[in-house]
Design a protein around this nucleic acid. Structure first.
Lengths: 183, 183, 183, 183
DNA sequence: GATGAATGAGCGTTCATTCAT
DNA sequence: TATGAATGAACGCTCATTCAT
């Protein structure tokens, strides 16, 4: 025994998948452990408790967006090209994200009971909005840019819920296309 | 003993509130019973099991929308007036609905594991979309009307998630206003 | 199922026995349940948690002493007779109390971590001391009476520890005899 | 790696403190390791298992008493002086012993389940009693000397329990003073 | 219809212990 | 020797559910 069988990141990835498809409260430590080929007690070698897994899961995804998507706003591209790139990467992410957006899911399922979660989630959506607004400001006044950004994120989040129910890809992609018509 | 202390509807209402604010899986039969002044065993005189409460909760809300909001489409009013009335009632409902939209919440939390839930939820959103589309068709071609309806519902659902996080009423109301500019 | 199989008092008595012979921390809810012919979850119908069982166990014994032993101080008997009666009942109790004095045991095992326990335990020993002191005051000045009472209780408690190790009844009884030579 | 960070004796001392203040069963291997700046697995390089730590802890204290206190009986001093010296050292030990007498504590908490522990504990108290009896025999007949020794130890042990509850030093010291009045 | 007592499975967590590195 | 990762059993506790009263 005592051979290294897993890593913090692997556990996190398996947990994220389970949280998205089964919900946070319906995912047990045993479920996560199973998925990693461990027994549930072993998870505690890597995480203090279940809440910590949830919090680190939220931060993990949040950081993924920061690094891979939101950072595009600072690239030297034409307005339209920047937005196109962001929309493309965002669409790709959610089309392949079985179970939707973890941040939004946990916003509805647990953020009422967990202030630390709530803070990360609010921060994620604010950063997203600011990222898009900054690009849109190249063509729109500040307020309008912010509103457009907000409305896009809302429609996308609503659309992800619908995509989960109906699996209609076209409709999901339409939200991004709509945004691109604005620049 | 054997005094009637409660009704099915009362239990349902208390359960709906708990499901919305705490999530379905995090709400126990004991929580629901407590809220009704009963002990948990007594709930089973009214509902077969917890899943039935969830299902009837979804249907209860769905029927509320059918009767009180979606039916407006058949009233004899000008296009704009009809839409105005629907938006007003919808906004009122969600502004006062602590914890957001139960249908959308359960769509993310449990619909993956419960086909009966999923069916009701899909039907609810379809009916909603058709209701709006029917009105918008008075001014738009069929496809466009359907798209506008879908996009409004998506933005509203996304906006409800944000409202739950930030409590910003103005932004929630903006979604409806946006729709009304379209007619 | 659902037939009444036990009572709060029965659970308490079984728990007391286990706490005394195995220690509080080494007695599991499953141990207590086993002893009562229940499964561990069922215990929670009668007690909120394990700490409550411990606290009620302490109070239960404390009240037994109040009612059956300490109350003797108010009976209309000669000083010597009162003391004799108390010593006799006390000796009987501890000779048949497998595992010693729960109050003293929990004083060493858990009172450091549980203020509520500590309070009950301190109160028990104070009441005991005051009871004996009141009787001894009939023959001794106040201070001396209090000291004699205290020393008796200490020797008895020490003696109970030894009795648990060696099972020497005579030595346990000697402590009471000693006290009686004082009046 | 493989640097010597600790010694058996250091672990033992930390463990003794924890056993006395938290109880044996409530002290985990991780608690002990923490206190030593190790991780729990490392403890097993020094001790076979937790029971061995407990047993060696008991022996360690027992030997301390043998060497530093019980040995006084063989010094060339007047009876009263010998007793005085023993009482002084004993009082000092227990006044500074956070959590009381480990031997007595484990006598109540675990000796019922562990014969090896029980043997060491019984032996400790027997040696103590014999030590005092031998000195008292210089002034008293054998039986009486043994009884006085036994009663002193019992009162002291009971008094240590009370000291832990009330922190009243004076009362603890009174037990020793009492003994000294006897010679 | 309501209650109180029970059940068995499962929860998140901690435990003592093992062992390759 | 020390470490980090693992194990399996047990912990206290909660769950949805059942049913005689």
């Amino acid at each position: 025994m005592a051979i290294k069988k897993t890593s913090k990141e692997e556990i996190l990835n398996k947990a994220i998948n389970l949280f998205k498809t089964q919900g946070f409260n319906h995912t047990s430590m045993a479920n996560i452990a199973d998925e990693c080929g461990l027994i549930k007690g072993s998870i505690y070698h890597h995480f203090k408790n279940k809440d910590e897994i949830g919090l680190e899961a939220l931060k993990y995804i949040s950081e993924y967006f920061d690094k891979n998507i939101f950072s595009i706003k600072d690239e030297t591209l034409l307005t339209k090209e920047k937005l196109k790139k962001i929309v493309k990467k965002t669409d790709e992410y959610f089309l392949n994200s079985n179970g939707g957006c973890l941040l939004a899911n946990l916003a509805t399922e647990v953020s009422n009971q967990n202030e630390a979660y709530k803070t990360v989630i609010i921060d994620y959506f604010k950063t997203w909005e600011d990222c898009l607004a900054k690009i849109l400001e190249e063509k729109y006044p500040k307020n309008e840019a912010q509103d457009l950004a907000y409305e896009y994120i809302c429609s996308l989040q609503g659309s992800i819920i619908m995509f989960n129910l109906t699996n209609n890809k076209k409709r999901l992609l339409k939200i991004g296309k709509n945004l691109l018509t604005k620049v």
